[in-house]
Design a protein around this nucleic acid. Structure first.
Length: 420
RNA sequence: GAGCUUGUAGCUCAGUUGGUUAGAGCGCCAGGUUGUGGCCCUGGAGGCCGUGGGUUCAAAUCCCAUCAGGCUCCCCA
């Protein structure tokens, strides 16, 4: 078995039966919290037009330049979605969701694809949940959005996180800031890392994100964007902070926080966990007031976040948080002989209809092997059925944990289990 | 795209300076209990030692290549 005929592609991971319960639980929590906040679920296709992602996410971003799974069929250009904000916005515009009135509060859960080098907390197919509010400019929207994100982590018990916030400005502020940044870095250009020198032309704000040792002293003294915000944008940012304070959500201002995607404006935030190693971002988001228009809709202010589910589950593991209960089944019917097997098949539905989970052996194992299987399946009770029991109409109900048995007729068994 | 590192049973790992039929624990299957689990005892199945090539009388062990995993850089979830 060391050389299976087929295996997953690089960075593609099977989620096996031992893992799925915690995924189901996580999804359930996301649905429940989203409902409390009155967000509605949206499900968009895995495949989108390449042009949508290129325009939406940004032509020069790493995602678009080197991480897309893209292919063509005839004249159509397909891409496996690398994130879900652009698709949600596409759906919003395509189906005129603004006509539903008010602001739209949407959330999603699903797989995303980026062709990066895998490592801990990074796969090529990974899963995100996220939410978007379309059509609201008010800082209250930003903060309620963050509150939804935080409430999911809090409910799970991941509380040792740091929320970093910043304002990356509106186009006007950003232009002024970029010029100031360039003026600042230009004379020092040859002392910066190679990577940062490249960023200087494309996206000077990214230099602030650099982790290169040699860049750090320059970054420390660089001008910060919050000094360049125009009045309206500064006021918006201040209100976001005030609202966070009033909700008791603690945060750290990080003037160097720059999000990776081009569409972000004004509020930017990121949730960091110390339990994740190199990939320490649990989730992040911000405003993208220009994206709807970029994708062909009416100018519509919007804010959202996306969070990585694998990373959330890694954090759970580090913190010894058990999301899901161990597997179990209410009843395991142990059969002796063919008549008993037929009896079991007929009576399983009656148990299940009474909302009692039940199973039996399919492969004709010995009683001992069936008992062992019942134990392995973590059965609460076993019912032992043989010719004696069939003749008397009384079946042996064994409490697996207490190792106690009693003879009951079938209706009594159903009643006993239903009452618990 | 780059660096480091690992690759022996389903899982976690031992395998000494290259030397006969490759080991352990757990798991799996069976027996010890003729109709009964978890503990214990006994036995069994399961590996061309990631793959391909090379060095050698002899390779899991040395060399090269390749594939895959892990970690890191980059970037992000």
């Amino acid at each position: 078995m060391t050389q299976p005929t087929f295996s997953t592609h690089l960075g593609m991971v099977d989620i096996l039966p031992d893992e799925t319960p915690k995924w189901q639980k996580l999804e359930q929590i996301i649905h429940e919290e989203a409902r409390k906040f009155n967000f509605e679920e949206i499900r968009t296709p895995i495949l989108e037009q390449t042009e949508l992602i290129a325009r939406g996410v940004g032509e020069l971003t790493d995602i678009v330049t080197k991480e897309m799974f893209a292919f063509e069929r005839g004249d159509d250009h397909y891409v496996l979605r690398p994130e879900c904000t652009a698709p949600v916005v596409r759906a919003f515009v395509e189906h005129h969701l603004d006509q539903r009135g008010g602001s739209q509060k949407l959330y999603y859960i699903g797989p995303m694809f980026r062709a990066e080098r895998p490592q801990k907390g990074r796969q090529r197919q990974f899963h995100q949940f996220g939410a978007e509010i379309l059509g609201a400019d008010d800082p209250i929207a930003d903060v309620d959005m963050i509150a939804l994100m935080m409430s999911i982590y809090n409910r799970i018990g991941i509380s040792n996180t740091t929320l970093k916030i910043n304002s990356v400005g509106d186009p006007e502020s950003r232009k002024a800031y970029k010029n100031a940044l360039k003026d600042y870095f230009r004379p020092k250009l040859d002392q910066l890392s190679d990577i940062s020198q490249k960023r200087f032309e494309n996206n000077p704000m990214r230099i602030l994100d650099s982790k290169e040792e040699e860049d750090q002293p320059f970054i420390e003294d660089a001008p910060i964007i919050t000094d360049f915000l125009n009045e309206a944008t500064a006021a918006h940012y201040t209100e976001v902070k005030n609202h966070l304070d009033s909700l008791g959500i603690s945060y750290e201002e990080d003037p160097h926080l720059v999000r990776g995607l081009d569409y972000y404006t004004r509020t930017a935030f990121e949730l960091i966990s110390p339990d994740l190693g190199a990939q320490d971002a649990l989730g992040g988001g911000g405003r993208y007031d220009l994206l709807v228009e970029e994708v062909g809709g009416q100018p519509t202010p919007a804010v959202g976040f996306a969070a990585g589910m694998e990373r959330l589950l890694i954090a759970c593991e580090e913190l010894d948080i058990e999301l899901a209960e161990p597997k179990s089944v209410d009843i395991y019917i142990v059969t002796i002989g063919d008549n008993a097997r037929k009896w079991a098949l007929k009576h399983l539905p009656k148990l299940r209809n009474a909302d009692i989970s039940a199973t039996m052996d399919y492969i004709g194992r010995s009683v001992k092997a069936q008992m062992k299987d019942a134990d392995r399946e973590n059965a609460r009770y076993s019912i032992i059925v043989g010719d004696n029991e069939l003749k008397k109409g009384k079946f042996t109900l064994r409490n697996m944990k207490e190792s106690e048995e009693q003879a009951l007729d079938f209706d009594a068994i159903i009643k006993k289990l239903s009452d618990q």
